[in-house]
Amino acid sequence: MSDNTIRQFISFTIGDEEYGVDIMAIREIKGWSASTALPNAPRYMRGVINLRGAIVPILDLRSRFGRGSTEATARHVIMVVAVGNRVAGILVDAVADILAVPGDDIQPVPQLEHAAAGFLTGLVTVEGRMVALLDLDHVFAFDDMDLSGAEVAA
């Protein structure tokens, strides 16, 4: 069965790797601004920021993938995405490109010993670069997050 629907993604980089997020999920892209840390949150939760009056949690994608924390500077970028009814931000190194990809070109994720593999929905090759497409629902599964050091009250 062929799927020729063109889907658009915005790609961004973390180190040398390029990742893509469905353009429809993206609400805005803004520069890094200092966040307020959340107590006893997982390391990859950078905290919360004020996005025009709404409290929006920011997730450090590098840290979520287990590659250590991002040293955020003014050049870093927050991609604000909608996940279900929630709005959240992803801290990434830089925005790379806008991609238009036919459905057929999206390859399934192979079984890899890759820390990020569980967070991906597929892979595409664009101009020789491999772009990994993010599964936002999985990345932002806040309710299932293991909150180390904050076990549920007896």
Binding site: T36, L38, N40, V48, N50, V56, P57, N85, D143, M145
Partner: peptide
């Protein structure tokens, strides 16, 4: 509304400088 309840924290607010507390 965008995250989840945090133990010890009842809510958040925005300070005069735009930061969240």
């Amino acid at each position: 509304s965008n995250y989840r309840p945090v133990e010890g924290i009842s809510a958040a607010t925005i300070l005069g400088d735009g930061r969240v507390a």
